[in-house]
């Protein structure tokens, strides 16, 4: 059985236009008047110091309520975004009582759709979780749990995927492998990946943006060449990584 990588037609993945985004807590303004367009079908990586509001920006796109957050978000194709987004967070948020297969199909159950068990099995198998399909999350390692969260995200099969530091709790080797799997699985979708890891951003991002500290402003970093996931051994990768670190250091009052 094969599972198509990416949505059936990559062209369906809409661009996302964010305008006038602002995050204020009382007198503190994290950012205001922020405009950003996520290219359709491409991966945009967002970096920046902790607590600057990257997660809030992600929530704004997802249509989730958050204190102090304002701004408008629309899809490039003019259709509503609700129901076209899948989300993956740093914590796996797997349901402890449910087998992996049921965790994967949670979205279908919550929407009252008939769960497609063969598709869920195929996704889990492709992510190397075949033998664990009937296990509960507590029986899994951190890497496996995060892969299960990825499986749940892929099962949603949405053209837009928002990821909030999905690999930051993993060890370096597991993270590296999972980045590759993710990049392949999400190719063709509109992806926003919030991360703390500059190398991760450069490996996975068609575009890399840095949100710098108060009042926040976005800066685009030139990315190295090569197909995603990019090869870190290339010479221009190291150069780009250097520039990125420098940019993160600028204005990063929080260090």
């Amino acid at each position: 059985m094969t599972v198509p990588d990416g949505p059936a037609a990559a062209g369906r993945s809409p661009a996302i236009v964010i305008s006038g985004a602002a995050l204020r807590f009382g007198d503190t303004c994290h950012f205001a008047g922020l405009d950003l367009t996520l290219d359709g079908g491409r991966t945009t990586c967002l970096l920046g110091p902790s607590g600057i509001g990257k997660t809030s920006l992600l929530k704004l796109i997802a249509g989730l309520p958050a204190a102090g957050l304002s701004g408008t978000v629309s899809a490039g194709d003019g259709a509503p975004l609700a129901g076209r987004i899948a989300m993956m967070a740093q914590r796996d948020h797997l349901l402890p009582w449910a087998r992996l297969i049921d965790n994967t199909m949670l979205g279908a159950r919550l929407r009252g759709e008939a769960p497609d068990e063969s598709r869920a099995r195929a996704i889990l198998t492709r992510l190397g979780l075949g033998p664990a399909i009937d296990l509960r999350p507590e029986a899994l390692s951190g890497g496996m749990r995060q892969r299960a969260a990825l499986a749940r995200t892929l099962y949603e099969d949405r053209p837009v995927v928002l990821m909030d530091e999905p690999f930051s709790a993993l060890d370096a080797v597991t993270r590296h492998r999972l980045q590759e799997v993710t990049a392949r699985a999400l190719a063709g979708r509109t992806v926003l990946l919030v991360t703390h890891d500059p190398a991760e951003a450069l490996r996975l991002g068609d575009r890399v943006l840095v949100l710098n500290s108060r009042p926040g402003a976005l800066r685009e970093i030139e990315v190295p060449g090569g197909a995603i996931p990019r090869d870190q051994a290339r010479g221009d990768f190291a150069a780009a990584l250097g520039r990125l670190f420098e940019s993160l250091g600028d204005g990063g009052a929080q260090g």
Binding site: K59, G83, M87, L95, L110, G112
Partner: peptide, 27 residues
């Protein structure tokens, strides 16, 4: 809260009929 958000995104744009019951039953 993370699960609340996840469920919101998952059910966004879907049919609101029986949504509460499904959330109660599965989550």
């Amino acid at each position: 809260p993370g699960l609340v958000d996840l469920a919101r995104v998952m059910t966004g744009g879907g049919s609101p009929r029986g949504r509460r019951w499904r959330l109660l039953r599965h989550l």
